[in-house]
């Protein structure tokens, strides 16, 4: 039988409105009674679990939404673009003013669509899978990584969280010597897209790292692969990706030595008619033999992954 007074105190604690006398009373109850501590966990654990569950549930909504396109990006963006938050904000202001005139008419409106990816900015704090390439749509999966708030002088480009690549191996996989990469993949279901017309999509993401990495550890990459098949075929298709993909595009991104700035990379792919799924890949390079001081990719980050379709969906 739960103690209602204790329950009210726990609720106040969870909502951050417990005053000093209330705190003392809650502490007294918790110290005196094992039953009170059990009740605390029964009620307070839900608070933490709800945060996680809500992020999963409400960040997973995925639908195509028309967005105003960024004309500058298509005019001048190469695969290197600074993503420093303040310049980005200023750029956004400029872009906003710019696109209100000719830019929007030329690049946006009916022609521009963002494909909202699940957890594209890693805000959901859903742990990306660490067991290799996922066999389901719309989840990140790959090598060992984690989602993190700002740390080590690096601030997320978008929102409060970002992806940190931790290791070039998946969970349960032995470390591999030599030149390797830490991957995260996502499979996107394309079957609802019209199958009669090729479409061009652009994948972009921002990358950043701690200063001081050796040259082999300054690079990131992103890629897209178009396949026919089912989500559960993903890992099998990946095994010989360049032969099995209908089409693919990939690029590398060289990062600078300033943790305050991010570099955005992008790669563009014309998706062949008949494509059923698209495999997105973002990765950080690690060369063990060159980077003895930091073998675990402790300072390599990605954020704000975007997938855009240039010719619109109906």
């Amino acid at each position: 039988m739960n103690d209602e007074a204790l329950s009210r105190s726990i609720e106040a604690h969870l909502e951050g409105v417990l005053d000093e006398s209330g705190r003392r009373e809650l502490e007294r109850m918790l110290l005196e009674s094992e039953a009170a501590r059990r009740q605390f966990w029964e009620e307070a654990a839900l608070h933490g679990l709800l945060h996680e569950a809500a992020k999963v549930k409400w960040s997973a909504a995925r639908e195509l939404a028309p967005v105003r396109r960024d004309p500058v990006s298509w005019a001048v963006l190469t695969w290197r673009m600074f993503c420093r938050p303040v310049p980005m904000a200023l750029a956004g202001l400029v872009i906003g003013l710019f696109s209100a005139s000719w830019g929007y008419a030329r690049f946006a409106g009916a022609t521009g669509q963002l494909v909202p990816l699940t957890n594209a900015s890693f805000e959901a704090q859903v742990i990306p899978g660490t067991s290799g390439l996922p066999a389901v749509f719309d989840v990140w999966g790959g090598d060992l990584c984690r989602v993190t708030p700002a740390e080590q002088g690096i601030t997320p480009v978008q929102g409060r969280r970002m992806l940190r690549f931790l290791s070039p191996v998946a969970e349960g996989t032995a470390p591999r010597p030599g030149y390797t990469v830490s991957d995260q993949w996502m499979l996107v279901d394309m079957r609802s897209w019209p199958a009669t017309e090729a479409r061009t999509v652009v994948l972009s993401a921002c990358f950043n790292r701690l200063a001081g990495a050796t040259p082999g550890n300054q690079r990131f990459g992103l890629a897209m692969f178009a396949f026919r098949g089912r989500a559960e075929d993903g890992p099998r298709l990946w095994a010989n990706v360049r032969r099995r993909a209908l089409a693919y595009a990939e690029t590398e991104v060289q990062t600078d030595h300033d943790p305050a700035s991010w570099q955005r990379g992008e790669t563009r792919l014309e998706i062949p008619v008949g494509t059923e799924m698209l495999l997105l890949r973002i990765h950080a390079f690690q060369e063990h033999w060159q980077d003895e001081a930091a073998p675990n990719l402790i300072g390599h980050y990605a954020d704000d992954v975007q997938l855009r379709v240039l010719n619109p969906l109906p």
Binding site: F40, A45, G48, T130, R146
Partner: peptide
């Protein structure tokens, strides 16, 4: 840590 992160987060938030 990665595997247990949701539970650890719930522990912290409690």
């Amino acid at each position: 840590f990665v595997r247990h992160q949701p539970a650890l987060k719930a522990f912290v938030l409690a």
